[in-house]
Amino acid sequence: MRSVTDHSPATAAALPEPAVADIRLESVLHALADPVRLRIVASLAGAPHEVNCLAFDLPVAKSTLTHHFRVLREAGLIRQCRRGTSKMNALRADDLAARFPGLLDSVVGGYRATAGH
């Protein structure tokens, strides 16, 4: 896994994530197979900007939530950066569309159709 270089001054504290060419389909599908992680991805897909980890109302302990975010980041689904004491999250929609065209739209659309969102 390679570390990301700065994308802008606002993301100077970006956490390591795979380069687009290194995102593997099986890692993405494994990450999306968990209902909590799928819910996080669907929430980020509808967010107009980065979202703080603490903004998600999920039925898991904080340590478990940290694990879920790490799995999503290491699979290449999200980008995380630290801003002060906050960890901000954004979906890597453009990167995923470049690597696996249509996959993210299909997964999020399917989730929303079945979850009533």
Rank of each mutant, 00 (worst) to 15 (best):
L32Q: 00
A55Q: 13
I40C: 00
I23V: 15
A42W: 00
L38V: 04
P18H: 03
E17L: 09
A33T: 06
V51N: 01
V20T: 15
E26T: 14
A19K: 13
P35Y: 05
A55M: 11
F56E: 03
L58C: 09
A33S: 15
A45L: 01
A55S: 15
N52S: 14
S27N: 15
A45N: 12
L32D: 02
A47W: 01
D22E: 14
D22P: 03
E50K: 11
P35G: 01
G46E: 04
P35W: 06
P59R: 10
A14T: 12
P16Q: 06
V41E: 00
L54I: 14
G46T: 02
L44N: 03
L44Q: 00
H30F: 15
E50I: 05
V20Q: 12
E26K: 11
T11G: 13
V20I: 15
L58K: 04
L32G: 02
H30Y: 14
A12I: 12
L15Y: 09
V41W: 02
P59V: 10
C53W: 08
A45G: 11
D22N: 09
E17I: 09
L32F: 02
A42V: 10
L54C: 08
R24H: 07
P48N: 03
E17M: 12
R37G: 04
A12E: 12
C53F: 08
A14N: 08
T11V: 11
R37M: 03
A19E: 12
R37C: 08
P9S: 10
L44G: 03
V51G: 03
I23K: 04
F56C: 05
D57P: 09
R39T: 12
V36T: 14
R39L: 05
V36A: 05
A55C: 09
V51S: 04
E50Q: 13
I23D: 02
R24K: 14
P48R: 06
A55I: 06
P48C: 04
A31P: 09
L32N: 02
V36Q: 05
A31E: 01
L44W: 00
A55L: 10
A47C: 09
D22S: 13
A45T: 00
A47K: 05
A10L: 15
L38I: 01
L32W: 02
A33N: 15
L44A: 00
T11S: 15
A42R: 05
A55E: 15
A31M: 08
V28F: 09
S8A: 14
A14R: 13
A12V: 13
E26V: 11
A10G: 13
R39D: 09
